[in-house]
Structures are given as C-alpha cells and as structure tokens.
Amino acid sequence: MRRLLSAGLLLLPLSGFAAEPVATVPAPAAAATVTQAGSGMAAQLGQLAVGLLLVVGLIFLLAWLLRRVQQLGPRGGQVIRLVASQALGPRDRLVLVQVGGEQILLGISAGRITPLHVLKEPVHQADTEAAPPEFAQRLMELLGKDKH
C-alpha cells in the first residue's frame, strides 16, 4: 500500500499535463511557422533600417537648408565687419570690428564684451589673402605637395 501511495504522489504533478489534450504540430507546419517568424524579423529590421536612413537624410537636408538660408543675407552691404581676431586664452579674445568708418577693439571673455579702444585711424591690412598657417605649410612639405 505504501508503494502505491508513493507512486501516486510521484505521478500527481504529472497528472495536470495528462488532463490537457496534447496538440501535435505536423513537421511542415512547424517549419512554416519558423520561416514566418524569420521573415517577420527580417521585415522589422528592414523597416528599422529604412526609418533610420530617412531620419539621417532629413537631418542632412535640414542642415543644408540652414546653410543656404544663412547665406542669403546681405553680403556687400554689411555695416559691421570683423577685421581681425586674436585668441588670448581658451575663453578670452581680442577682436577688431569695423562699424561704418570706425574701428573698435573689443575684449571678449566668458560672460562679457568690453570695448577697449576706438581707433582714430582705421587699420588697413596690406594683403587680404592670408598666408597659410605654419602647420598647413609644414604638412604640405611632409606630404611632398609643396611646390617650393
């Protein structure tokens, strides 16, 4: 009697499975389900890639439009013009600005702009084309593209 009781207790947890009908899936139907799941995943990845490309393309389009709109402003008729700039530190600069016929030397720091001096005679730059910086010139020499 003890054997029957112990065998019954061991089979008790499995009795819940026996009460439910067992569904069998034929092999071709199981393969079709796996194929559909794989194609569904591929379709989702494809949609994700297309969406990502559209967003990146939209960002580039908006950046291009922003540059075009900024360039449409008045070119030759500007009243304020930056003549020269010199960095004094990571956040400090000296800037020479021409407003009409007057040139003003400004000190620019992290939180303020201070007029330092109004020049009585405007500073004229002899050559409007800037000489290449030393780094660029040295790099060209190292690459062997310097014509000298």
Rank of each mutant, 00 (worst) to 15 (best):
L139I: 03
G101M: 08
V95G: 03
L139Y: 08
G101C: 12
A23F: 14
L62T: 13
L119K: 05
R91T: 08
L143P: 02
A18I: 03
L14K: 11
G73P: 14
L45W: 07
L119F: 06
G100V: 02
V25D: 06
G101V: 09
R112Q: 03
E129H: 04
K120C: 06
G89I: 01
L106C: 01
M41A: 15
T35R: 12
Q98P: 01
R3F: 05
H117T: 07
V83D: 00
P115E: 00
E20G: 12
G57P: 07
G107F: 06
L143D: 00
L116I: 02
R68P: 05
Q70R: 08
G46I: 00
A18F: 09
Q36F: 11
R75W: 14
S109Y: 05
L66W: 13
S15Y: 08
V95S: 04
E134T: 15
L116R: 03
R112C: 04
E129A: 02
P26C: 07
R68H: 05
S109V: 03
V34F: 10
L72H: 12
I104N: 06
A31G: 10
L62H: 14
A42I: 00
M140R: 13
G111T: 03
P132F: 05
Q98N: 00
E129D: 02
T24G: 14
G8T: 05
Q125K: 06
R138P: 01
G144W: 00
G16V: 06
Q71K: 09
P21T: 15
A32T: 09
I59F: 10
G40Y: 13
Q78V: 12
S6H: 07
L119Y: 07
